[in-house]
Each structure stands twice: as C-alpha cells, then as structure tokens.
Amino acid sequence: MFKIKSFINKHNIYGLLTGLFFGFLLQKGGITDYDVLVGQLLLEDFTVFKVILTAILTGMIGVYFMKSFRLIEINLKPGTLISIITGGLIFGFGFGLLGYCPGTLVGAVGTGSLDALIAGVPGIIIGAGIFANIYPKFKNSFFEKNQIKKNNILDYFSVKPILIIFIALVVMVTTLILLELIG
C-alpha cells in the first residue's frame, strides 16, 4: 500500500525540512505547551498572539515583496462566510477543549505529551473523516454558493497595495505594543 519510492521525492523532502524547522520553532516559542495555549484562550498569557501576529507581519512583508518581483504567487483559500464562521467556531470550541490546534498538537507529540498523541491526534483524524463522509450532502449549499469573490483585502481599496500593507503593519505593531503593555 505504501510504496517508499512514491513519496520520497524532492518536493516531499522540502515538506519534511519545513516541518522540522516549524516544529523546532513552535517548541522554542513555548506554544507546544498546553498551559501556554490554554493560558492564551483564558486571556492570561499572550504568547500565542505575539507569535502569530509577528509571524503574520513578517510573512506579509516578504510575501508581497516577493510577489512584486513575480517570484511567488498569492495562494488564497476560497470559502463562504457561513462555512468559515461555522467551521471556525466549531474548530475553536474543540481547540479550547483539546488545548492544542493541529500544528501545535503534533508539536506537543514531539515533546512527549501523550494526551496529544493518544487522544488528540485520533480525534482530529476522526473529525476530518466524519467531515469527508458527509461533505457531498451539503457541498453545494454550504461551500459553493456565495463564495467570497473579492478574497484579497487589497482588492477592497483603490489605493496602492503598499499603502494598505503599511497600514496593516502599523495596526499589527500597535496591537503587539498594546499586548506588551497589558502583559
């Protein structure tokens, strides 16, 4: 069933290497730790927000810089508001109970957290499997009708993209400074 040759290729090796660095960074950031993740959801520890916001703003600068030189293409996830808000809230509800999101969950497995390995991972696989099996029933009404057409925030403004990116940067940096001030 699994032929070694079929998945050992250059592209997959890049995936493995990206994952190695990603996992290393998640652990060093402290966000493979249940207490830190739940501390964020309880609004007592803002480590997760700090990591995510800094990653977003750093990523945004590089992605749009590279895009302006046509080195990369923007790759946005499509969706409808109803599927994303409903799915997002269901995800979030589970996130609070599990205490990990999918990426930090597999990171937690690496640090020896057995709750992540023997309950969290099977749980997500079951949840994804349930979704896969009922997907055809509500695909059209839920996922295809009324897809967000203008999905890039830049498309909502008629000014130069760099201005919007700069404003987004200022908003995110200000948010980080405020987070630092409130602890």
């Binding site: 990523g59 945004m60 997500i124 994804a128 890039n152 925030i153 919007i164 987004a168």
Partner: peptide, 29 residues
Amino acid sequence: GGIFVGFGARMAGGCTSGHGISGTMQLAV
C-alpha cells in the same frame, strides 16, 4: 476536542497554520 477541531478545520478550510498564519499574511478575507 480533537473531533471538533478536525471537523471544524475541514469545514473552515484550514487551521491556525493554514488560515491563521499563511492565509492572513497574504491578506485573505
């Protein structure tokens, strides 16, 4: 919790990494 996370992630089309970091940095609504 994991079942909710797995189901919700697929309904939303991504998780904290795919949507929350990679999608947001590209400024996807």
